[in-house]
Amino acid sequence: MTNLELTRKLWDASEATGSFQPIIDQFAEDVVFQATIPPGTPISGEFRGKARLQEYFDTILPQVASFEQLEPLEFVPHGEDKVIILGNDAFTLPVNGKKYSSPYATVLTFRGGMIVKMLIIQDLSGIYEAYKGQA
């Protein structure tokens, strides 16, 4: 199975179950995750290791924002070890009740069929503005 096929399978399983767990299960033990948001929020910086990402997706992120996919995803292979996922979603912040929407690109890097890096490139300035000065 190619990384592109695996990515589609994981995202389909995640959508079908309503859980990010199928994707988390494919993380390597040494996985690195980062979203493009300045320092000062609970989701800023790098998160390293499968256990830490389990905590990120199960506990940290839900306290910061709830996300809803707005447009179908597009999966783009990039070289032998990367898949780029393009989409558009909305997110609501429990801290202030505000809702934002933004396109995004998620870059997955694979090693031996496992996800070793996940980078989300998205305008998360609404989250930053809600949390700046609180950290």
Rank of each mutant, 00 (worst) to 15 (best):
T2V: 03
N3Q: 12
L4Y: 02
T7S: 15
L10Q: 06
W11F: 14
W11G: 00
D12I: 02
A13K: 07
E15V: 13
A16W: 08
A16F: 12
T17W: 11
S19A: 02
F20P: 06
F20K: 08
Q21E: 15
Q21W: 09
Q21Y: 07
P22L: 09
I23D: 00
I24D: 05
D25S: 01
Q26T: 10
F27K: 08
E29L: 08
E29Y: 06
D30S: 13
D30R: 07
D30Y: 14
V31A: 03
F33E: 12
F33G: 05
A35F: 05
T36N: 05
P38W: 07
G40P: 01
G40L: 03
T41Q: 01
P42I: 02
P42Q: 10
I43C: 01
I43E: 01
G45K: 06
E46L: 11
E46F: 11
F47D: 04
F47K: 12
G49L: 06
K50P: 01
A51M: 00
L53T: 09
Q54V: 13
Q54C: 03
Q54I: 10
E55G: 04
D58A: 09
D58T: 08
T59W: 07
I60V: 14
L61I: 09
P62Q: 09
Q63G: 11
V64A: 01
V64L: 07
F67Q: 04
F67N: 05
F67H: 10
E68N: 10
E68T: 15
L70Q: 07
P72Y: 11
L73A: 04
E74L: 08
F75Y: 14
V76Q: 14
V76S: 05
V76I: 15
P77S: 10
E80C: 00
E80Q: 06
D81R: 04
D81I: 07
K82D: 02
V83C: 13
I84G: 01
I85H: 04
L86H: 12
G87N: 09
N88A: 10
D89L: 09
D89Y: 14
A90E: 00
A90G: 04
L93W: 05
P94V: 01
V95K: 11
V95R: 08
G97S: 05
K99E: 10
K99T: 15
K99N: 01
Y100V: 05
Y100W: 11
S101G: 00
S101Y: 02
P103G: 13
Y104G: 02
Y104N: 03
Y104K: 02
A105I: 08
V107N: 02
L108N: 14
L108D: 01
T109L: 03
F110L: 03
F110T: 05
G112L: 02
M114F: 13
I115T: 11
M118C: 12
L119R: 14
L119V: 15
I120F: 10
Q122N: 10
Q122M: 14
L124R: 05
G126T: 02
I127L: 05
Y128G: 00
E129F: 01
A130C: 02
Y131G: 08
G133R: 01
Q134G: 03
Q134C: 05
A135H: 06
A135E: 06
